[in-house]
Design a protein around this nucleic acid. Structure first.
Lengths: 296, 296
DNA sequence: CGTAGGTTTCTTATAGACAAAAATCATTTG
DNA sequence: CAAATGATTTTTGTCTATAAGAAACCTACG
């Protein structure tokens, strides 16, 4: 059976939306709600039905009215609004990093299914998608092997990353001044400066900013294969940041300053400087990653 | 239920192996057979049991003897020895190319399952793996869309291909003369020359040679992400060759000559010449591909 | 007559079952 | 006791079933 995470997320969203409405106002139409929440009318109706039994919405048909007074309905826990497929990645990476980080470790679908409390189908599907990250490999009719978060993995990853990033950075620097990308880059620059001011408390926020910065650069010359590669980078770094907390504040501060230099070079449209700043940043990012890989 | 393609392929292989043995010789041990056919002993025993009922092998336990006289057992049809997962790709590409090549076409798992005579699980698994080829995209809770074999697809593919190929070619040219790769490259050179001699009849054989040539170059500096990208190239070109038969003989002849020039440059360790030959070949390959893409 | 709600049909996400194949454990024999 | 066969346990590949969710169709009201 499907999980009803779509319904639960939508329920919470509508609850939130409705709570901002004045008491007694009419509910937006089913189509409007569906469009706003990016779900089908079928699910909208299910949500409305649930809200009716909870007394948040009264009336029927075109005459549905919001009642925000009285005890409000309780939203579903956040965990139940995340689709299963998305949760597997999180749990799998945690399992890899905490328990079984050794290269060559066999990955057993049945064991994972039991550990994660789900059917093997879901595990298989995840592993098949995860394969492209280059960390696991399939042995037909036998299981999967974890190839290890090794030095060579990091080196291979960064070889490609450098090629792609330099190419995108050059393309961006060559963009005319009236491209909307410059405004977006300026906004990101401000975010970097703000983060730098509050680095002591907010240093965890860098992971997300980092991903957005590099992805923005890659949009200067869109290429589906490069975009797809950035998914890999994002996931690897996301978990690397979660796992390796050593010197996190300081590492992130250094990276922010490198980003700022990199952005200055971009704003200056100076290809040579851009390449220099880009390379410098990637070298330092590579060193950070390399410090937490296993040998071979 | 699993298909028994492993058993059937193994059965055919053992039948073939046994037919070369003199009548009355003892059968190799189960372990030996398993190692040679890359299958588990369980399947070896199943094959032996089948051969016993067919009278090709007599005796039991350690005393099993081959009987090649009399009517020999019939092998299983080749089609039944190919694992289902491998067959889907073939059928899917054919379906894409023949029937529904239009960008934006919705891909319906259930419909494909019915058309291919298999369960939806198998289709899903295939589509999830095929996603990395950049030709399809998933809409959660809805189906998949075919993004189209478009001009931009070809351009994006070749942008990456050129980056990767130039980098590998440079690495290969820089390899010392005693590297085993040079001998392998010489062997490939001979294959090219032979194919060129019989181009009129054997021009279909180029597809395979092409793939092996470019993959050999990439082994000069192994990188899992590049290898993975070559899988995409190989599949795309495999089906492109099957689909677009126009001028096939001539196109392949041109490509062979380009390869030969490229190889000469590599043997000469002349980076500038290598880059020239490599670029020239890729440009012409790109043109070929572009000629059969749809607009946008 | 176009937009909204009501109803029906179709598709996807996930679980569960089971034979094929692998992996492990046990026994025999030279 | 090492290498082979025999028996048993686990795991994978594939199918079927079903609720959640999307999509399509229908009806009614302003």
């Amino acid at each position: 059976m499907k999980t009803d995470t779509v319904f639960k997320r939508a329920f919470n969203d509508v609850l939130d939306l409705v709570s901002r409405l004045p008491n007694g106002s009419t509910l937006p139409s089913e189509n409007t709600l569906g469009a706003r929440l990016k779900i089908s009318r079928t699910t909208v109706r299910k949500v409305i039905a649930a809200l009716e039994t909870q007394g948040v919405v009264t009336g029927a048909g075109r005459e549905r009215v919001v009642r925000t007074v009285g005890e409000t309905a309780r939203p579903f826990p956040h965990a139940e609004t995340i689709p299963m497929a998305a949760q597997v990645e999180e749990r799998f990476m945690e399992w890899l990093l905490r328990d079984n980080a050794r290269p060559g470790t066999a990955i057993n679908e049945l064991e994972l299914a039991r550990k994660f409390g789900m059917a093997t189908t879901g595990i298989r599907e995840f592993l098949n998608r995860f394969q492209r990250f280059g960390l696991i490999e399939k042995r037909p009719n036998s299981g999967w092997v974890f190839k290890g978060f090794t030095t060579s993995f990091a080196l291979e990853l960064f070889e490609i990353r450098e090629m792609f990033e330099l190419r995108s950075a050059r393309a961006l620097a060559a963009l005319p001044g009236d491209s909307p990308l410059w405004a977006q880059l300026e906004a990101l620059q401000r975010e970097h400066l703000q983060l730098l001011e509050n680095i002591e408390t907010r240093f965890h926020d860098f992971s997300d900013l980092d991903s957005r910065f590099h992805r923005l650069i890659s949009t200067a010359a869109p290429n589906r294969f490069i975009d797809s590669f950035y998914d890999i980078i994002t996931v690897i770094f996301h978990f690397h940041y979660q796992w390796n907390k050593q010197d996190e504040r300081q590492r992130n501060e250094v990276a922010i300053r490198e980003h700022l230099t990199y952005m200055d070079a971009l704003f200056g449209h100076n290809i040579a400087l851009v390449e220099l700043a880009c390379r410098a940043h990637l070298v330092s990012a590579k060193q950070t990653l390399l410090r937490s890989t296993s040998q071979k």
